[in-house]
């Protein structure tokens, strides 16, 4: 092409910044590895640890005894179901309050958003441990913890979807003289409802995964079996429970994916 002069350009030197970033990443990784106690020799040695034999054979008759695994497992599902229902229903009004599209006023927006960000920054099992201390060991505390955490996750996902919704139906409803709440429910809600259902299913999936491990901090569900058996060094039973958990997570994920596909 005529506008380009046909002379070879000088090869640009690699940027100093690239070197600095690369050097920082390498140094940080090596430093972290040392702090964490990683070394290739420990990595290889650990596979020949004789303790692995304690994981085998799995005592299936113990696993399939109703009181040992099935009951705690049902409790896990109950925690997940109730906390998904509580979390997702509370999330509905709060999401509309903190979406920039539908918020009733600025102070509500900022305060709610800040609170939700802080709630989400505390990991789910921290919530569980705190509530176990506050209201006693068991599934009740676990349900509270997961309700709070799934509320925060749901609000984040759903409010961002509302942010991206088409603002024109809302404008139309307002132009017709509608008050705030009815305008939102007729103008925005129908367009974002399918996303809400899909997120709810996703949150349910998260809650199943979380409720499995809640028991490790005393908040009920199948995790308490794992915790108790590892205290007794019965790693064979731990492995058995783990295999059950593994199958359940796989099945739940498949079902959830299939349902979401149908709904969206």
């Amino acid at each position: 092409m005529t506008e380009i002069s046909n002379s070879r350009p000088v090869r640009p030197r690699p940027k100093l910044r690239t070197f600095l970033v690369a050097a920082f990443l390498i140094v940080f990784t090596v430093f972290s590895a040392r702090k964490v106690g990683f070394s290739f020799s420990t990595f290889w040695e650990m596979w020949s640890n004789p303790l692995w034999e304690k994981f085998w054979p799995v005592p299936w008759e113990w696993i399939f005894d109703r009181h040992n695994v099935v009951d705690p497992l049902l409790e896990t599902f109950q925690i997940a179901i109730i906390s998904t229902l509580i979390g997702c229903s509370l999330a509905l009004p709060i999401s509309f309050a903190i979406s920039s599209l539908t918020t009733p006023n600025r102070p509500t927006y900022f305060v709610t958003k800040a609170v939700m960000n802080i709630v989400r920054a505390i990991p789910d099992l921290f919530w569980a441990k705190l509530l176990v201390t506050a209201i006693g060991i068991g599934a009740f505390a676990g349900s509270w913890a997961l309700s709070i955490f799934s509320l925060a996750v749901m609000v984040k996902l759903f409010s961002e979807t509302i942010d991206g919704a088409d603002p024109r139906p809302l404008e139309a409803a307002r132009a017709a003289g509608g008050r705030h709440a009815p305008s939102v429910s007729t103008g925005v809600f129908p367009t974002v409802f399918p996303a809400y259902v899909a997120y709810a299913l996703y949150v349910f999936e998260l809650n199943i995964r979380a409720s499995i491990v809640l028991g490790l901090v005393g908040a009920g569900g199948i995790g308490r079996v794992v915790e108790a058996q590892r205290q007794y060094f019965r790693f064979d039973r731990v492995l058995g429970v783990l295999l059950i958990i593994f199958v359940i997570v796989l099945v739940i994920e498949q079902v959830s994916v299939a349902l979401r596909k149908r709904l969206i």
Partner: peptide, 16 residues
């Protein structure tokens, strides 16, 4: 992916 980190750590702690 199906094994939660915590459960995996429960397995590794007796070993490591």
């Amino acid at each position: 992916r199906a094994v939660p980190e915590l459960i995996m750590a429960v397995i590794f702690i007796p070993i490591t």
